[in-house]
Amino acid sequence: MIRRDLVDAMVAHARRDHPDEACGQIAGPEGSDRPERFVPMLNAERSPTFYRFDATEQLKVHREMERNDEVPVVVYHSHTATEPYPSRTDISYAQEPDAHYVLISTRDPEEHELRSYRIVDGVVTEEPVQVVESYMFAHTGVDDTPDGS
């Protein structure tokens, strides 16, 4: 589940950097699995076929997230000429077992494609994406029922 404004921000970033790949993360409170704070990152490769977080910026953002008790809930990047499915390189680098890996394809100039995956130990599992206006009013299932009710 992800807020519409965060989806719009990822897509806008992907469109802005097209034809190079765009990348970034969305931070959320540790343990919440709720993406909240949009953090676009520099693609140090500035390439249409490869991305890498700029290492210096990554450390700075990591420190901010530690101070805020946040983790990267979403790690996103774009594919600018191919479908939004993790490439072999994406899979080999995927090292955040708790993150949702979001891929955005900008191969079509009008319609973007956005999909989300878990990548754990080299195994890719697609997951449904539910876009909501606000987390406050979204139905989030029995886990949110207060104890004793």
């Binding site: 490869f50 890498r52 290492a55 450390l59 790690v75 490439s87 390189t89 680098y93 090292q95 955040e96």
Partner: peptide, 8 residues
């Protein structure tokens, strides 16, 4: 130590 975040 941070994992490199990269891919293609």
């Amino acid at each position: 130590i941070l994992p490199a975040v990269a891919g293609g």
